[in-house]
Nucleic acid binder design. Sequence first.
DNA 1: CTGTTAGCGCCTTCAT
DNA 2: ATGAAGGCGCTAACAG
Lengths: 370, 370
Amino acid sequence: MTVTLADVAARARVSPATVSRVLNGNYPVAASTRERVLRAVDDLDYVLNGPASSLAAATSDLVGILVNDIADPFFGIMAGAAQTQIGGPGDGSGRAGGEKLAVICNTGGSPERELTYLTLLQRQRAAAVVLTGGAVESPAHQAAMSAKLTKLADAGTRIVFCGRPPLPEGDALVAALAFDNRGGGRRLTEHLISLGHRRIGYVAGPRERTTTRHRLEGHREALHAAGLADEPAGGESADNGGTGSGDQDRLTVHGPYDRRSGYEATLELLRRAPDVTAIVAANDTVALGACAAVRDQGMRIPQDISVAGFDDLPFSVDAVPALTTVRLPLFEAGARAGRLAMGKESPPPGGIATIAAELMIRGSTAAPRG
Amino acid sequence: MTVTLADVAARARVSPATVSRVLNGNYPVAASTRERVLRAVDDLDYVLNGPASSLAAATSDLVGILVNDIADPFFGIMAGAAQTQIGGPGDGSGRAGGEKLAVICNTGGSPERELTYLTLLQRQRAAAVVLTGGAVESPAHQAAMSAKLTKLADAGTRIVFCGRPPLPEGDALVAALAFDNRGGGRRLTEHLISLGHRRIGYVAGPRERTTTRHRLEGHREALHAAGLADEPAGGESADNGGTGSGDQDRLTVHGPYDRRSGYEATLELLRRAPDVTAIVAANDTVALGACAAVRDQGMRIPQDISVAGFDDLPFSVDAVPALTTVRLPLFEAGARAGRLAMGKESPPPGGIATIAAELMIRGSTAAPRG
DNA sequence: CTGTTAGCGCCTTCAT
DNA sequence: ATGAAGGCGCTAACAG
């Protein structure tokens, strides 16, 4: 029924081994023989049986890319960029040569699904796995991830983190590209402070996420440095929970990384502290929601209130006014992660590289009135 | 080194066959035996070897989702929705039971890569393939796709189209969910006409794409019906090429489905026909670029010029002014496609269902001045 | 450079 | 309800 490698061998009048060799190209074969085999392949419309091949070779050509929310361009851009480096150029024949199958797995931000996908990838004997975006910080999940990743690495799967810090007990088995979320967050708030803002609201992302925590830490660093933090209670290491310093907590609202959350959290913020003159959002999408809320309250941006985002997604420059934000080189980082996953590029020294975040000052922030 | 099914069998003091049966759950096994096997699996941290399993069973648990551009939320939303139906709920154990591995493949809009991915998926003996978004209409590519899909279907792979019309020679092997792009495009332009617009520019998507053509056809239908089309030259079937009716061609500019194209095409449009009072964009992303161009020319929206989009992506409501657009139920369609791919839902009668598009009238369109 | 020979780990009749 | 045995299609030593 389906044509196998043996059929091709028969038609080309060679042994199955020879066919395998020309197909994999990793072994010397006479040009004339190769020619004959290739023709037989085309004649028969032969397609390699992936599972059989993977079983025999004990590796597969699958590369997994895990993302928290594929509907969010933040992840879409990184994942797409990674795929460009993994999928191979394609020879236009649709025949599929040595390229890998780069596949994106959407965890929806759920730790369980993240683990499940890793198991599925492990089951497929994936060649590499790229993990993007912030990690959930619960100790239980971290331990489970660590164990799972160790097992994957032991089985020969290459592990790459992209836009996510390496695990605490991160063995040197992995390469990691971490965004400078803390530095970006700090510079953003410093910008606001330099403009004259003193009461700044913060619409944070979900709790227990590295990205959320680091951006918030950067924000508070700037606040502290400017002497704007009342009752500095917990210090850096305590502010991912609920018990930070009093005033800062009142000016911080957590929520998912989506537009709706930005809208609602901003309303809440404005209720709690009507005197805020600026709002920093966890990311650009949240900022868009924040802008809508501010407007719906009859206030103007930036005259009455400044709004800033994070990430510099493509739509941010088109917001009205254009969004002040922190640019993350998502495409470049994704592409680099893809190359790392393919072993095309050697890992950074120490296994971890920090990716700079650049402050983009635009129209949505200005000096407070008065 | 790696633990196999035989190891589990030994530890549970049963035969490999029994272990296989409890793992696949499709065969009666004594409760006590199952218990023992499951414990052995946990003790040994056993993970099924996917390739071996697929080889023996001649099917895999891979489901491919093809998208044109994963950085575009249009595709991200559909793909994410499809994955929710395919990935399985996950039991929280990270153990991975019977769920499929739903993977997203980013073609970048390239016909070659589309074919390559299909070959890769065929090689993996994918259980199903979901194709999203508009198809390229070149006859050569259509023929190649048709041949490839037929082969996939013959090999037992389920084929589902989502937001894309079925192939011309589409066998009943497939289920298709097609968006009513033509109807949506028509209603959008009718809305503009009813507002009083007479000279309407159109920033179209890339040529030779079904989505582009259908939306444009809808637009021109509305124009014709209102008697606004000068020199109706080619008629419906001719206007995807360069030789449509004269004036309509001058008012139409093609480009990619991105923000930049919207910006540049709009500038071009404004140069060609400074008297246009409205601009219809191929989609919301393009519309954002169009808005920026209009503003950079010192004109206001909608007072000086109306702008409309298509798709109703999440950010569209947050544009200023909010974008008039055509809403496509992307999430619902993606989820349905996922169910279809899993065989959880029976195909629509005739294999093809048309998904309605709803006109969303917002602030970016208004009557022309004067 | 090419053919031969064994498995890779699992599923699936066929027995029992 | 469980065990035994063969083979899925390919690759990877070994020979030659």
